[in-house]
């Protein structure tokens, strides 16, 4: 018995060490950023396509106030409430002091500048596919936005979800950076896929999740119960969304459905963001939605 323990203990210790290493927060590769220059003008397009203001603007902010990224919005989930942080240009309370590499680590790996895991309420699971150029452009754009000195509030999560280190384990299980739509043969489809799966993070709401909050990629964009509690998130695969490409693009621009009802709820904010994009981006998104596998 004792001999068996002597044999087993190092194996267990090695496994734990391996698990510890595998769940460590990862950072962006600085070499990938070498020579990448950010442009604030292009960054505006990244910002609106990424929907940053939807969570990071103050609750109920409208118009230009949505550019003050003071945070404070509460995201209700089955795991507890997440409070969106201040990502304004304030050096103390916001992210004014961040380098492009810091932003790249956050967006592509879900890792904070001090080396902690972010919770996936911050959709780095989608942003992981962002190009370094887009991240540098976004950095430049964010730097020019107003500062807010609103202090951050801690998330209100129950045990065991309040153990931040455990997010490393979650990432091992569910942090999948493969494209869902494998084939994007035209530039328009490739752009639509990038806008939908990376920047727009459509799947974060429109794809159902399992009990641990991992996305069910076999039911990509097939909708499901709203994790915030009220109502359902619609299925937007071609199995249910029978609008034409032109109708989808027009909806994303104006919020008008083909029946000329108009978007409400959180989708109204998405439309506000997407209305800032050039028309070809909304057309690319519409083409993408027509190309994803239909899920009844």
């Amino acid at each position: 018995m004792r001999a068996a323990l002597i044999f087993v203990a190092p194996v267990v210790a090695a496994l734990l060490a391996a698990l510890f290493l595998a769940t460590q927060p990862r950072r962006a590769d600085p070499a990938a950023l070498a020579g990448v220059e950010g442009d604030a003008g292009r960054g505006a397009r990244v910002f609106w396509a990424g929907g940053c203001a939807s969570c990071h603007a103050a609750p109920k902010a409208e118009g230009d106030a949505r550019l003050i990224l003071s945070g404070g919005r509460r995201l209700v989930s089955p795991f507890g409430d997440f409070i969106a942080p201040n990502i304004s240009s304030d050096p103390d309370h916001g992210i004014g002091g961040w380098s492009v590499a810091d932003l790249a680590s956050a967006l592509r790996h879900g890792t904070s500048p001090d080396g902690a895991h972010y919770y996936p309420a911050f959709p780095y699971t989608s942003y992981a596919k962002m190009t370094y150029q887009d991240i540098a452009d976004l950095r430049a754009f964010l730097a020019g936005l107003p500062a807010s000195d609103r202090p951050n509030a801690p998330h209100e999560l129950g045990f065991p979800f309040n153990i931040r280190r455990a997010v490393g384990l979650w990432k091992l299980l569910y942090f999948d950076t493969e494209w869902v739509l494998q084939d994007a043969p035209t530039p328009k489809l490739a752009r639509g896929r990038y806008l939908a799966e990376a920047l727009g993070h459509c799947g974060e709401c429109h794809t159902p999740r399992n009990a641990l909050g991992g996305l069910d990629r076999s039911r990509w964009l097939a909708g499901g119960p709203n994790p915030a509690g009220k109502g359902r998130i619609p299925n937007i695969t071609p199995a249910r969304l029978d609008w034409s490409e032109a109708e989808i693009a027009y909806y994303l621009e104006t919020g008008f459905t083909p029946e000329f009802d108009s978007a409400g709820g959180e989708m109204a904010e998405v439309v506000e963001n997407l209305s800032h994009l050039p028309p070809e981006d909304r057309e690319a998104l519409a083409a993408y939605l027509k190309a994803v596998p239909p899920v009844p």
């Binding site: 109920k60 409208e62 709203n226 009220k230 109502g231 359902r232 619609p234 621009e253 104006t254 919020g255 008008f256 108009s262 978007a263 409400g264 709820g265 959180e266 109204a268 904010e269 439309v271 506000e272 209305s275």
Partner: peptide, 21 residues
């Protein structure tokens, strides 16, 4: 101009209409 009206519709629906079940 139609787009601007859509924005105004959405602003009200976002704040005051219950999301569809």
């Amino acid at each position: 101009a139609v787009g601007a009206v859509g924005k105004a519709c959405g602003a009200c629906h976002k704040a005051y209409r219950k999301p569809k079940e």
